[in-house]
Design a protein around this nucleic acid. Structure first.
Length: 509
RNA sequence: GAGACGUUAGCUCAGUGGUAGAGCAAUUCCCUUUUAAGGAAUGGGUCCAGGGUUCAAGUCCCUGACGUCUCACCA
């Protein structure tokens, strides 16, 4: 990024002048703050009365923040100070700055928009009725050497500011300074994750942390990132899911565990994809599919109520139970393809062709069924819905449905036409699990490089005995998208994956 | 991976093949209750990069980089 050198140089000169006046912005280590700006404004009347008595002699209230607006008027000035959460107007009068430091006014004149400033003073209301702080003393706390893209703002409306999405993501701090919505998204995400934790903690789940560096990345169908561990001189992979280690903990007789952690999938970027994202998975021994459904319903209801104070969000009522629909029934209703047609690969391909979908790349029944689901059913699943009963080929970790050959005890939850969770009764039969892995290895040999690898350590754990267990996974980023109404994953990822920026200053980088 | 669109001052954006523009921000000056403060003056450009066409290219053509959107792939 090309830098306006003159602005930077001017501000470095101002920095030196501030130092010469005894106001080195970088020298202060701590500045005592009495109140947040928001608190100051909320409790203004009470705090203003308190400060009335002390008006003449000593400083009363102390606040700090970034100067976001500045209106100088000769020997007085107005400024707005923002602590990120809220902003308050400052009134600075040359004659009313404390006499003990005659350089204070000169120092103030060297303050720019973007600088951090600590001030003391008393509260008052201006002629036009704005709650303000009458400044007695000021302490520069940082100097902005760049021209921050702070626009003008009135009544919460912003004129200018930073809108270039590229710059917003690459320099997220500027986005957070300039765009209130960016800050809100950050806070909402944090609140949602906190409430998810609280939900599971209160239900007696143990939060655990499992390895990110793994010899074989399993638990999902995805290509892993590869890296190298020098000490052992081995290739290791970044995890693509949390699943297998969490189930090994279940095998260790810890009956309820959850993890919220980053996983990495070596894939492209889109509105709803980022190569690293945050996954929530929880497992509960002795629980089945129905228990998992209720848990998902409770979780969404809890988070919506706690974070947004309402189970109704974006036209969806998370207070109600979710619809429960059999996958094959849903496909038949939406596409007219009967379950019998999807019993062999040949008839399934024929059915696909009949409804106008390409069949060239299809070589297993499960894949076709999931494609039909995606194409015909998903867009209609606006209301929270559990689709139940997934084909065995695409569910290598889910328990077989004893009543339906070829299908597993697995469901996915959908809201507003998008998948929000994936759950199943976990396989605890080590023989079955080994067969599934072997089948996946067969798929891998046939060219599916996302097929699940064999994991002997996991099999060994199952062979030691795992109780019947229900498990569920939710992409936290997509959950936040859903609850906040964000249209892009990038809006709720602080630092989304971006190609390196080619700068003119450093073309070699 | 494919297509469409975009990239001009610190920020937001105009710009019709013929001298590079505006608002805000910045610099200097005036102004002791303003609030998108106001007034006067000033400075600020690798028009994404590299080729090409042309007397002349920010503008037209080609290639590339980065981004946005849509589609494809995946979750």
């Amino acid at each position: 990024m090309s830098e306006d050198r003159s602005i930077r140089e001017i501000r470095l000169e101002k920095l030196q002048q501030l130092r010469d006046l005894g106001f080195d912005p970088y020298a202060t280590e701590k500045f005592k703050i009495d109140h947040s700006v928001k608190h100051l404004l909320n409790e203004f009347d009470q705090l203003a009365n308190l400060s009335e008595s002390a008006k003449e002699d000593k400083p009363t209230l102390s606040i700090a923040g970034r100067v976001v607006a500045l209106r100088e008027m000769g020997k007085a000035a107005f400024a707005h100070l923002s602590d990120g959460e809220d902003r308050i107007q400052l009134y600075i009068r040359k004659n009313d700055l404390d006499e003990w430091n005659e350089n204070a006014w000169a120092a103030f004149k060297l303050v720019d928009i973007g600088d951090h400033l600590g001030v003391t003073g008393h509260l008052f209301t201006t002629k036009t009725g704005e709650k303000s702080l009458y400044v007695h003393t000021l302490t520069p706390l940082s100097k902005a050497l760049h021209n921050l893209p702070l626009g003008k703002e009135k009544d919460g409306e912003q004129w200018y500011g930073l809108t270039d999405v590229d710059q917003r993501y690459r320099h997220r701090h500027l986005d957070l300074i300039c765009n209130h919505e960016a800050r809100e998204q950050l806070l909402n995400r944090s609140r949602i994750v906190s409430e998810v934790r609280r939900f599971f903690d209160h239900r007696g789940y143990l939060e655990v942390e499992t390895p990110l560096l793994q010899l074989e990345a399993g638990g999902a169908a995805a290509r892993p990132f590869l890296t190298h561990y020098n000490a052992y001189d081995i290739q290791v992979k970044l995890r693509i899911s949390l699943e297998l280690y969490l189930k090994r903990i279940i095998c260790g007789d810890v009956p309820k565990v959850y993890e919220i952690g980053r996983v990495f999938r070596n894939e492209g970027v889109s509105n709803r994809h980022n190569p690293e994202f945050t996954l929530l998975e929880w497992y509960e021994a002795y629980a089945n599919l129905e228990d998992m459904m209720e848990c998902v319903e409770d979780l969404f209801r809890h988070v919506a109520n706690k974070v947004f104070g309402d189970a109704h969000l974006h036209g969806i009522d998370f207070g109600k139970p979710w619809h429960r629909v059999d996958l094959m029934t849903a496909i038949q209703e939406r596409s007219g393809i009967a379950p019998e047609e999807l019993s062999t690969l040949e008839s399934a391909k024929a059915a696909m062709k009949r409804v106008g979908l390409p069949t060239e790349k299809e070589n297993n029944l499960g894949g076709i069924i999931e494609k039909l689901l995606e194409h015909f059913v998903e867009p209609h699943l606006q209301e929270p819905t559990f689709i139940v009963g997934y084909p065995i080929e695409t569910s290598p970790l889910a328990k077989k449905d004893p009543n339906r050959p070829g299908f597993t005890r697995r469901f996915e939850g959908y809201v507003l036409g998008r998948e929000v969770c994936n759950a199943f009764s976990e396989i605890n039969d080590p023989i079955d699990q080994r067969e599934r892995f072997e089948q996946q290895m067969g798929e891998h040999d046939k060219g599916d490089d996302e097929a699940h690898p064999m994991d002997e350590q996991f099999i060994y754990a199952l062979e030691s005995g795992m109780p019947p267990t229900g498990g569920c996974g939710i992409g936290i980023d997509r959950l936040v998208m859903l609850l906040t109404g964000a249209e892009h994953l990038r809006e709720i990822l602080l630092f989304p994956m971006m190609r390196p920026e080619l700068t003119h200053d450093n073309p070699e980088d």
